[in-house]
């Protein structure tokens, strides 16, 4: 089975994946990246330090094969005229 590596980028913070994961397809890699991005987003986005999380997926040759990004946008509405 091919091995994929999942690096995580949050603003200026970068976490590289040295171990990787054996997965049977690119679809499985996409699901793993999406779960990771969504979970990290759940933890980190409400803190407001960073507005998006990107998981960058590499193959065994070090070639980037996919990025998955989650972001949060907060829009405060204008106050109603009194």
């Amino acid at each position: 089975m091919p091995r994929f590596y999942f690096d995580v980028r949050e603003g200026t913070r970068f976490t590289s994946d040295e171990a990787g994961l054996e997965l049977d397809s690119l679809d499985a890699a996409e699901y793993e990246a999406a779960c990771g991005a969504a979970e990290i987003g759940r933890d980190q986005l409400p803190k407001g330090d960073t507005r998006d999380i990107t998981v960058e997926v590499r193959d065994e040759q070090g070639q980037q094969v996919m990025t998955v990004r989650v972001s949060m946008e907060v829009c405060r509405s204008a106050p109603l005229p009194s």
Binding site: F6, T15, A19, E32, C35, E39, I40, V55
Partner: peptide
């Protein structure tokens, strides 16, 4: 393994790797 740790924590291995690295 990171996968087993993920199964303890209810987290994907991607997220486990991130917190262990932190």
């Amino acid at each position: 393994t990171q996968a087993e740790l993920g199964d303890c924590l209810g987290l994907s291995t991607v997220h486990v790797n991130r917190v262990v690295q932190e």
